[in-house]
Computed example of a mutant assay.
Amino acid sequence: MTSPALTIGCFQYDTTRSLFDGSVSADGVDVTMETAATLPDVFDRVIRGNEFDVAELGLTFYLRLLETGLPYVAVPIFPNRVFRHSCIFVNVHSGISEPGDLAGRTIGEFGVYGQDSGVWAKGILMDEYGFEPARSRWVIGGLDRPAAPFDFIPHPHPREVDVTVAPEGKALGPMLESGEIDALFSANVPQCVLDGSPNVARLFPDFEPLERDYHRRTGIFPIMHTIVVRRELLRNRPDLVHGVYRAFSQAKDAGAERYRQNRRLYEVQTMVPWMNALVERNGQDFPEDWWPYGIAANRTTLDAYLRYHYEQGLSTRLWRIEDVFAPELLDT
């Protein structure tokens, strides 16, 4: 008897490598793994093309479409998480040296007002420093190359927030370097920073201690993306969601185990000096499962994100976790 086929679209991470190499799979399912050159490409294929049975999707993209009948439902699998104090960049000649200096300034954001990284960065600044997004002007565009805002999702924002599109032929990274914008909230590091431009710096240059302190105080490890499953599949095969959850969990655990085992070899499988010291230092701040899936271990983080999304005018209602994720996995 032929096993049912399942197409999964996501990025290749440590958390998903074992799914791509076939060492982990969903029981009784013939899985085909697909990816794309960029994450927005994956999201576009999910939203506009409905190409995958199971896919990675940014939390904000999922929430924006949840009210309009998206044919997917989220499961509490989180392959992409990043602390976000480090994602705020400023022109060094702008006079911005602390969060309060962002008021009245022009700030760029890649692709959409309120990317997952931007939702987190704004939310953290609002909670910790009294930041008010409506007091700044926002410009949306491509990061290192000119690009129109994403056209595969809605673009809600509060009426009082000034949001415009970058001028034709302009990209946000070069605009930051030249001083055409004062700051940039970005999921990716702009090329001018990678090239060592003297005109651009992070708002928080020594971000690691700040992010570690934030994690210790709040228990929050910011989640960027979730995994979604086609609703029709769950209606026809309600057992499938548990198989998908187990497969992604096993792949994530296999990735973590590689780091644990390679401590014996000082993590020499990487080219990063002192990687072993970093892994050991992280062990002081994180429990044994430092990248948890499921609802219980992530409730604080998810509640914060849902609140930020609503407070920033990206949701018309304050979503509850129980409204957002597949009911079959609410007890995870």
Rank of each mutant, 00 (worst) to 15 (best):
T2H: 09
S3E: 14
I8F: 15
C10L: 15
Q12T: 10
Y13L: 11
D14E: 12
L19E: 11
G22A: 05
S23D: 03
V24D: 03
T32L: 10
T35M: 11
A36C: 07
A37T: 09
D41F: 03
D41Q: 08
D41P: 00
V42C: 13
V42I: 15
V46K: 08
I47H: 01
R48Y: 04
G49C: 11
F52V: 01
D53Y: 07
V54E: 04
A55C: 10
A55L: 12
A55N: 14
L57C: 04
T60P: 02
T60R: 06
F61A: 15
L63W: 15
G69Q: 14
G69S: 12
V75N: 13
P79C: 05
V82W: 12
G95F: 04
I96A: 13
S97E: 14
G100L: 06
R105F: 06
T106R: 12
T106Y: 01
G108I: 06
G111I: 07
G111D: 06
Y113I: 03
S117L: 06
V119Q: 05
G123S: 05
I124R: 10
I124Y: 05
L125Q: 00
L125P: 00
M126C: 06
M126Q: 10
Y129N: 13
S136F: 11
V139W: 06
D144E: 10
A148S: 12
P149C: 03
D151Q: 09
D151M: 03
F152E: 09
H155E: 03
P158N: 00
V161P: 00
V163T: 00
T164V: 07
T164Q: 05
V165K: 07
V165A: 08
A171P: 02
L172R: 05
L172I: 02
G173W: 06
P174F: 05
E177R: 00
S178Y: 00
L184Q: 10
S186R: 04
P190Q: 09
C192K: 01
P198G: 01
N199L: 01
A201C: 06
A201T: 08
L203F: 05
L203E: 05
E208V: 13
E208T: 10
P209T: 09
R212Y: 11
R212Q: 11
D213N: 09
Y214L: 13
Y214E: 11
Y214S: 12
R216C: 10
G219Q: 12
F221Q: 12
M224C: 11
T226V: 13
T226R: 04
I227P: 07
V228P: 07
R230H: 08
L233N: 03
R235W: 08
N236E: 15
D239T: 09
L240W: 11
V241T: 13
V244D: 07
A247R: 03
F248M: 02
S249L: 12
D253L: 10
E257P: 01
E257C: 02
R260F: 01
Q261I: 00
Q261W: 01
Q261F: 00
Y266S: 12
E267N: 03
Q269D: 15
V272Y: 04
W274F: 14
N276L: 02
A277D: 14
A277Y: 13
E280F: 05
N282K: 05
Q284L: 12
D285W: 13
E288V: 07
G294Y: 14
A297P: 10
Y305F: 15
L306D: 03
H309R: 00
H309D: 02
H309A: 04
Y310M: 00
L314S: 04
L314G: 01
S315V: 00
R320H: 13
E322K: 08
D323C: 07
A326T: 09
E328Q: 15
